[in-house]
């Protein structure tokens, strides 16, 4: 078990070494980069948007109901919703969701290319198949995913505002002033950095699992499931580590 862990980890880093080779042609790389950006990031926008809107709304209701103490300023609801969103929800929770969506997409695509010999075919043409297939995915996801954090943050706050406006939980003005209270840009950077880091993990792990898939269609499914499970566990582990390093 432990031996297998070390072998897998070693193979993963060897894989990364092949992936991060200079592309054969930059023109082809950029074309693939935008195709992947569309397939992996742009197509996740709706999912992230819907979830963020709803979670923002729910957070307002929950926070307000937990702060019924009359000595607490109602403005703090807005403040706390903002902090929960930017610190944890917009990066970690969204990353967990993307681990499912992007991770399974990458692993199953590469896995099915592996078992139908398409990867071997690319390799036999004299092209570095790992670099051609994986590098555009990893880079586009890593570079562009922080935009999803910003989107999620914005829409989460909006979702909260909609709830505040349509109900009488707290006064809208209080919510808005809470949002502005003691705002730290560093948290936004922290959140975006976390997301980029998690996205790198999701894309490389699922690419690794898919690239070396074996055992027919069943094996592709297996590698896809495994890559999601591993990504999620690592996201939570590194969430702890990064937070300790960056916020304390």
């Amino acid at each position: 078990m432990l031996k297998k862990f070390f072998i897998e980890t070693g193979r993963y880093f060897l894989f990364l070494r092949i992936v991060f080779k200079k592309p054969e042609k930059w023109k082809i790389f950029w074309k693939q980069f935008f195709i992947e950006a569309d397939k992996l990031i742009v197509s996740s926008v709706v999912l992230v948007a819907v979830i963020s809107l709803f979670i923002g709304g729910v957070l307002v209701i929950q926070t307000a109901s937990n702060m019924s103490n009359p000595f607490l300023d109602r403005m703090l609801v807005g403040y706390m919703v903002r902090e929960s969103l930017i610190l944890e929800f917009c990066s970690t929770m969204v990353a967990l969701i993307l681990a499912g969506k992007i991770g399974s997409n990458i692993a199953s695509e590469l896995g099915s290319m592996r078992i139908s010999d398409q990867i071997d075919a690319i390799e036999m043409m004299g092209v570095n198949s790992a670099s051609f297939l994986v590098l555009p995915k990893v880079l586009s996801v890593t570079v562009l995913s922080p935009l999803l954090v910003l989107l999620s943050f914005y829409l989460g706050l909006l979702g909260g505002w909609i709830v505040v406006e349509t109900t009488s939980i707290i006064p809208a003005a209080k919510y808005l002033s809470g949002l502005k209270y003691s705002f730290s840009e560093y948290y936004v950077f922290y959140s975006c950095f976390k997301m980029a880091f998690f996205s790198f993990m999701i894309s490389t792990i699922s690419a690794y699992k898919g690239f070396y898939a074996a055992g027919g269609a069943l094996g592709v499914g297996r590698s896809s499931t495994k890559s999601i499970v591993i990504s999620c566990i690592l996201i939570l582990m590194f969430d702890l580590i990064i937070t300790q390093l960056m916020l304390y």
Partner: peptide, 28 residues
């Protein structure tokens, strides 16, 4: 680049059309 291979199940690229498949090695 000097070896042409036809795989057992053809291994055509699903993401590309017929003509793009044939053009693939030329692109590189």
């Amino acid at each position: 680049q000097h070896i042409g291979v036809l795989f057992q199940n053809s291994a055509l690229f699903d993401f590309a059309t017929v003509i793009e498949n044939v053009m693939f090695p030329m692109d590189f």
